[in-house]
Design a protein around this nucleic acid. Structure first.
Length: 572
RNA sequence: GCGCCCAUAGCUCAGCCGGAUAGAGCAUCGGACUUCUAAUCCGACGGUCGGGGGUUCGAAUCCCUCUGGGCGCGCCA
């Protein structure tokens, strides 16, 4: 099974080498989708100057030397238009159908650490956490599918000064009542109550501060209370994960507390080696190239003047652990865009320290802020908090309303409602580029028309319906595939691009490109569906061919949606 | 003050390793159901790609500048 773009790129490269010499064999042929052909190569124009020849002439020479399974045409200032032969496309599509991996190549295995979700137990969990969770989980699925060894890391906020008041509040409430509230997802209420007492009750804040000290010292009774608090909170996180179909497990939790014991050593080591220096009593790294006010070097503070540690220290300890112990080749942080400066300084400091070697790729997949319908930063305000589980339930309820009049039984309807509701919410998060801001809008994310999860799910349901009605098995179709109608040809060409898109999504950590591809694929299919009767095809050959195209589409859509973490119901 | 990000159709967004008349969804308007699920499809309407300058055969894309937003900038995480 070969990717058309790859075949064409190699064809052009061979032509370049044959025409201009072997040093041009590695030249990027600049293959792009074309409105006048299947693809076009733009390399003739970029090469013209270097070769000292007219662009059109270069294009002609390429065309003269090219050997591809299709036709070549030169147009415009020097575009090389490439059109693949129908027979070749049909044969490739048949191969793709026979290929378990649908043309997705397995890459040389790397160990990829992906840091995502990471809700903070001492802060309100909000819709922004949904996004890093959903995007991170999609990246995990893509990397695993590409053959990499993926290590999920859920870097929970589970340590630090706020836990003093959280533990004291637990004592005030009583353990059972506190656990019930926390695991029910009422963390906001709990946190706000603790905060209010901390701010308004001097006796309470005194106790809370004292509790921080015993927590830092890992006093057994304090640790017991901390565990009670965290276990209840994690139970709530797991409810959200389960409901969403997120692959995070308890063993993926590697919260801040995990690194607590290493912080002193991290600071000592950096100070000893002169990488960190004291400044106004605080221990700081000043990575080169970062300046702030007055053009002064920006500090990456790893120990406060009172001896306490912040998240900079923890993050350094974490990066060291991931490289040295987890043997990461690549570390992906799926974290809010507002942290961009911190992440840059973290990477720079870790490189300085030698804990992040050049061979290890560290990337910050910036998650854009979640905005309210007013266009401002979405934040839960007192009394107006949106509980995540309720939000997910509302998604399901809205989806259920749409299938309410279907003749399915109760259980089937519930399954559909779940898949469609979660699919809608997740797809909304995934289909816009991860770093752009995201306007939170119930109606839009739950809309069942247009570029949405449900539209894609619906396409798969219609395909299954064809097979059900005709009593065929998608797994049994073999073709051969014939591309007589333009809609069939367009669909085949579209399907063959699957492998390229998946590897691109992995390389660039950009799941929205997979969404765009799947949407285009579903569109190509519905056009085919409208124009090319499958069961009522004019001939047995056409019927078998169209069944094969439908089966291939079904598998590509299902696989693609699975990589995004979106389930497909059998029927809708 | 300094740094980063953003500005594309009425709305929500793609496109940004430079390439042909800038795309999609929603909305609006007009068509298509005795037909494999019409939750669909086809068509129309709609943009000085925030302004200006530059590089280039060619700029939404690269560089400079201005305007308007957002975020961050030493003891929260």
């Amino acid at each position: 099974m070969t990717d058309p773009q790859l075949v064409l790129a190699e064809g052009v490269q061979r032509a370049l080498a044959a025409a201009f010499g072997p040093e041009y064999a590695a030249e990027d042929p600049l293959i792009r989708p074309s409105q006048f052909a299947d693809y076009q190569a733009n390399v003739a124009m970029s090469l013209a100057r270097r070769l000292g020849r007219a662009p059109r002439e270069v294009a002609q020479v390429i065309a003269d030397h090219i050997d591809i399974p299709g036709t070549v045409q030169i147009s415009g200032p020097g575009f090389v238009n490439l059109t693949l032969a129908d027979g070749w496309l049909a044969a490739q599509a048949a191969e793709q159908l026979a290929d378990e991996r649908l043309g997705v190549a397995t890459e040389a295995q790397q160990t990829v650490v992906i840091d995502y979700s990471a809700p903070n137990a001492a802060k309100e969990m909000h819709v922004g956490h949904l996004r890093t969770t959903v995007v991170g989980d999609a990246l995990v699925r893509v990397q695993e599918h590409l053959g990499h060894h993926v290590i999920r890391q859920n870097h929970l906020g589970d340590w630090g000064t706020p836990f003093g008041m959280l533990i004291e509040h637990l004592l005030d409430m009583g353990e059972e009542a506190a656990v019930a509230q926390l695991s029910a997802g009422e963390g906001n209420v709990y946190y706000q109550a603790a905060r209010a007492k901390f701010d308004g009750d001097p006796d309470f804040s005194k106790r809370a501060k004292a509790r921080v000290v015993t927590l830092q010292a890992e006093d057994p009774e304090t640790m017991r209370l901390w565990h009670i608090f965290m276990n209840a909170t994690i139970r709530y996180f797991n409810k959200v994960y389960t409901q969403l179909g997120v692959t995070l497990r308890d063993e993926d939790i590697a919260g801040e507390s995990r690194y607590n014991a290493m912080l002193g050593q991290v600071c000592d080591d950096l100070q000893k080696r002169g990488i960190a220096v004291l400044s106004d009593g605080a221990l700081c790294v000043f990575p080169p190239g970062f300046t702030g006010r007055e053009n002064l070097p920006l500090p990456f503070m790893i120990r406060k003047s009172d001896g306490g540690y912040g998240y900079a220290t923890t993050d350094l300890a974490t990066i060291r652990h991931r490289v040295q112990d987890l043997k990461a080749d690549r570390i992906t942080y799926v974290i809010g865009a507002t942290q961009a400066l911190h992440m840059q300084m973290l990477f720079a400091s870790a490189r300085l320290a030698g804990w992040l070697p050049d061979e290890v790729r560290a990337e910050h997949v910036q998650i854009g802020s979640v905005l309210g319908s007013d266009g401002k930063m979405f934040k839960t305000r007192a009394g107006k908090s949106i509980k995540l589980l309720e939000l997910l339930e509302e998604g399901e309820a809205r989806a259920a309303a749409v299938v309410a009049d279907r003749a399915y039984d109760e259980a089937t309807r519930a399954e559909i409602a779940h898949a469609v509701g979660m699919g809608a919410i997740k797809y909304a998060d995934l289909s816009v580029s991860h770093d752009s801001e995201y306007v939170f809008d119930f109606d839009r994310m739950l809309a069942l028309t247009g570029n949405t999860g449900p539209y894609l799910q619906y396409a798969t349901a219609r395909i299954r319906s064809i097979f059900r009605r005709g009593e065929y098995d998608p797994a049994e179709t073999r073709g051969p595939i014939l591309l007589g109608h333009p809609a069939e040809r367009a669909l085949a060409l579209q399907l063959l691009g699957f492998g390229a898109v998946v590897s691109e999504v992995g390389a660039a950590s950009a799941p929205h490109r997979l969404c765009a591809y799947l949407f285009d694929t579903a569109s190509a299919f519905t056009t085919f569906y409208d124009n090319c009767p499958v069961l009522k095809a004019g001939s047995e050959e056409d019927r078998q061919s169209r069944l094969a195209l439908a089966a291939l589409t079904l598998r590509v859509l299902t696989q693609g949606l699975d990589l995004l973490g979106i389930e497909v119901p059998e029927r809708m």
